[in-house]
């Protein structure tokens, strides 16, 4: 019966409760058509949240994800504007984002600056670059073949592949065990021969690449590249990771928990603004959801000890 008390089952129960309530109050909400339309709002966040989970498990944090998304979007837009084919521009954008992430990783892993400080700084730098390079104007007019990247649930399938690979890597590979070990006790991990610096470097670079992909998808969905895309994405991603059961101090976290956390946030957000038609309620509800989940877990943990 121990599995019943895990974060994953708590999240699954909350999710089912939510959908049953939604079905009773707003039957149209629980239809394939509505869910399909609304799902498009989830994928950028979901894609960015996967590497964020790994970084948090390894005891780090990446506040610059939203800014890298913007930087990638603007790179794509500016290249496209100057005549580069959209797909080539998209690949270049992902590469630039990967380099931005690598930069973060280099500061964190090689110079050993605290990731909060590094990414707080680069969050401002990357966003500033995106705004400066694009002069904050929107760049639109992409061909339909490029816009297709964001349609027919392509981003959803991409995320499914990501999540499966991430789950496998975290649970079954040396790399995954290394990530957890770093988060548990970094010094011990180093002494036991785990390549701490290399793993960190890879994690931040991967985070950058994922942000690049999210940026490309956002541009394709909105048919516009703009420097304010991805604003606030970092906090949403961290919220999803924590809600999914990862420890903010590192050392613990599961991909399944993150996936459930993402869906719970997504469905709650969509349902609240669907039913009460007050957009601003969202913020309160997501914050409360996080607190409730944490309190619930405390309660369960206390029971277990008793």
């Amino acid at each position: 019966m121990k599995w019943l008390r895990s974060r994953e089952s708590a999240l699954a129960v909350l999710l089912i409760l939510l959908m049953v309530t939604a079905n009773a109050l707003e039957p149209k909400f629980v239809t394939m058509r509505a869910q399909g339309l609304l799902a498009t709002h989830l994928w950028e966040l979901a894609i960015v949240a996967v590497p964020m989970l790994f970084i948090i498990i390894a005891g780090g944090i990446d506040l610059s994800v939203g800014a890298i998304v913007a930087l990638a979007a603007v790179t794509l837009g500016l290249l496209f504007e100057r005549g580069t084919p959209a797909t080539v521009a998209a690949l270049a954008a992902i590469a630039v984002a990967g380099m931005a992430g690598f930069g973060n990783g280099w500061f964190v892993a090689k110079l050993k600056v605290h990731p909060l400080i590094v990414t707080l700084a680069t969050m401002a730098v990357f966003r500033g670059l995106a705004e400066g390079l694009s002069l904050a104007r929107p760049i639109s007019g992409y061909p339909a073949s490029f816009l297709a990247i964001s349609q027919n649930n392509v981003p959803g399938y991409l995320f499914a592949v990501f999540a499966l690979v991430a789950g496998f890597v975290l649970a079954r590979t040396k790399f995954g065990r290394g990530v957890v070990a770093i988060g548990m006790e970094e010094t011990a991990a180093r002494f036991s021969g785990i390549p701490v610096a290399r793993i960190k470097l890879v994690l931040y670079a991967l985070s950058g690449l994922a942000c690049g992909l999210a940026g490309v998808i956002l541009v394709a969905r909105n048919n516009t590249a703009k420097a304010d895309l991805g604003m606030g994405l970092e906090l949403e991603a961290i919220t999803a990771v924590i809600l999914g059961g990862a420890r903010i101090e590192g050392g613990r976290g599961k991909v399944l928990g993150l996936v459930l956390g993402l869906f719970l946030i997504h469905e709650t957000r969509e349902f609240v603004s669907w039913h009460w038609k007050q957009n601003e309620l969202n913020l309160i509800v997501i914050g409360s959801l996080l607190i409730v989940t944490v309190l619930l877990e405390r309660l369960l943990a206390a029971r277990r000890r008793a």
Binding site: K28, R33, H41, N222, K226, L229, M231, E270, N279
Partner: peptide
């Protein structure tokens, strides 16, 4: 005043029909 938030609302109203 975020345009991305406005997009989400329009999508949601579309889903509501």
């Amino acid at each position: 005043g975020d345009a991305a938030d406005a997009v989400k609302l329009i999508d949601q109203w579309t889903a509501q029909g």
